[in-house]
Amino acid sequence: MAYLEVRNISKRFGGLKALSDVDMSVEKGEIFGLMGANGAGKTTLFSVIAGHVAPSAGEVHFNGQRITGLSPSRICRAGICRTFQIVRPFAGLSVEENVRVAALFGSGRKRTRVEQARSVDAALESVGLSGHRAGLAGGLTLSGQKRLEIARALATGAELVMLDEVMAGLNPTEIAEMLETLGRLRREHGLTFVIVEHVIGALMSLSDRILVLHHGERIAFGTPEEIGANAHVEEVYFG
Rank of each mutant, 00 (worst) to 15 (best):
Y3N: 08
E5S: 15
I9R: 12
G14R: 03
G15W: 08
L16A: 14
L16F: 14
L19P: 11
S20C: 13
D23C: 05
M24K: 00
M24W: 04
S25G: 11
S25A: 15
S25N: 15
K28L: 09
F32Q: 00
L34D: 04
N38K: 09
G39R: 09
G39M: 05
G41M: 15
T43G: 10
T43F: 12
T44R: 12
V48F: 07
I49T: 08
A50I: 04
S56N: 04
G58Q: 07
G58T: 10
N63W: 12
G64E: 08
R66V: 09
G69K: 07
L70N: 10
R74Y: 08
I75M: 11
I75S: 05
R77F: 13
A78R: 01
A78V: 05
G79Q: 06
G79E: 14
C81D: 12
T83G: 03
F84T: 08
P89Y: 11
P89F: 07
P89W: 12
F90R: 08
S94V: 04
E96P: 03
N98M: 00
R100G: 03
A102N: 07
A103I: 13
F105Q: 06
S107Q: 12
T112M: 11
R113S: 08
R113Q: 11
V114Q: 09
E115V: 13
R118A: 10
R118G: 12
S119K: 14
S119W: 02
V120A: 01
A123R: 05
A123Q: 02
L124F: 10
E125M: 12
E125I: 09
S126A: 15
V127F: 03
L129T: 06
L129D: 00
A134C: 01
G135C: 06
A137G: 07
L140N: 09
Q145L: 00
Q145Y: 00
R147V: 01
I150C: 01
A153D: 02
L154H: 11
L154C: 04
A158D: 03
A158M: 05
A158N: 11
E159M: 02
L160C: 13
D164V: 07
D164M: 06
V166F: 01
V166R: 06
M167L: 14
A168H: 04
G169V: 11
L170E: 06
M178V: 12
M178S: 14
M178Y: 01
L179G: 15
E180Q: 14
T181F: 08
L182I: 15
L182E: 10
L185K: 09
H189M: 14
F193S: 04
E197L: 03
H198R: 01
I200E: 01
S207E: 04
S207L: 04
D208Y: 02
I210L: 12
L211M: 13
L213W: 10
H215L: 15
R218F: 01
G222L: 05
G222F: 08
P224W: 00
E225P: 07
E225T: 07
A229P: 00
A231K: 10
H232G: 01
V233D: 02
V236S: 01
Y237V: 09
Y237R: 13
